[in-house]
């Protein structure tokens, strides 16, 4: 039964990382830079729910509001910062440093507005606890798993079978060609930021439901998402999902064998190993 519990813990961690990494990869595919602000956008989503529930909104409405907040913040970062940088044809490093700046700014805005403390997002005792094959799993965790599956499915269908998806794929393959085909790439990237940031917001909200919210939560989410996406092959959605679950399992089973205080370091150990031996990740193209 401990084995079952570890599997359950790993799967749920993997599902949460999936949500983050999907948005991260979507944005990376279109813009070709590592958006360090992605985690802070996730935190914005979680705080959107925190604020809305405090104001007495119902849970479903609050979640919609939180997801939208994250999406809008993502678009704003693109419009105000990344889009002008694209027009200047700045180097990738400039994008990355600017995104680090956005990350710091958003985190400080959250701290100033809501305080630096940690708060649970759900009142205590919300949701049932299920016993699945000897493992205890909470209702929220099932929601995380369900959301990850649903988000992956919808995104997959969207990219594979719609015109919109073809446009995004054309953009990811070659921005110049996409431009020649008459696509307004700048506006498309804005839409992608909206989608990817909404996914991040959802991840932030669910993570907040599972444990709680804190302004610093974004960095952790971003790093786990970034590690998943590199391990899976950066820019590859399927790879990202594989990477997320691999990371979930390695983290949770890893500390079965070594002292658990190393949990934080395991993700980065895995990343370093991949960077050295297979930098293009599981599914990555050369």
């Amino acid at each position: 039964m401990f084995f079952a519990q570890l599997v359950a813990n790993s799967v749920i961690a993997g599902a949460l990382y999936t949500l983050i990494t999907l948005g991260f990869n979507l944005i990376y595919g279109a813009t070709k830079f590592t958006n360090m602000a992605h985690g802070a956008v996730a935190a914005m989503g979680a705080y959107g729910v925190f604020f809305a529930t405090r104001e007495g909104w119902g849970l479903p409405l609050s979640i919609v509001a939180g997801v939208l907040v994250a999406g809008i913040v993502g678009v704003i970062t693109d419009r105000l910062v990344f889009s002008p940088l694209r027009k200047k044809k700045a180097r990738a490093s400039v994008f990355v440093i600017a995104s680090l700046g956005i990350f710091a700014l958003l985190q400080s805005i959250l701290s100033i507005t809501f305080g630096a403390q940690f708060w649970p997002l759900l009142p205590p005792g919300t949701g049932r606890v299920f016993d699945i094959a000897g493992a205890s799993v909470t209702e929220v965790q099932l929601w995380i798993l369900g959301s990850a599956v649903a988000a992956s499915g919808i995104l997959f269908i969207l990219l594979k079978f719609t015109i919109f998806g073809k446009v995004i794929r054309a953009l990811s393959d070659d921005e110049e060609v996409a431009k020649m085909l008459g696509i307004n790439t700048d506006r498309m990237i804005g839409v992608i930021f909206f989608l990817g940031s909404m996914l991040a917001g959802l991840a932030g909200i669910l993570s907040g439901f599972d444990t709680g919210v804190q302004p610093t939560m974004g960095l952790f989410l971003l790093l786990e998402g970034a590690v998943s996406s590199i391990v899976g092959g950066i820019g590859s959605l399927v790879g990202g999902i594989l990477g997320a679950f691999l990371l979930g399992f390695v983290e949770n089973f890893g500390i079965w064998f070594i002292a658990s205080q190393w949990k934080g370091a395991i993700a980065f150990g895995l990343l370093t190993i991949f960077l050295i031996f297979r930098p293009r990740g599981i599914m990555g193209k050369d």
Partner: peptide, 10 residues
């Protein structure tokens, strides 16, 4: 850390 499940499982 805000997820102690594995520690507690152990």
């Amino acid at each position: 850390a805000r997820d102690l499940r594995t520690q507690l499982t152990k």
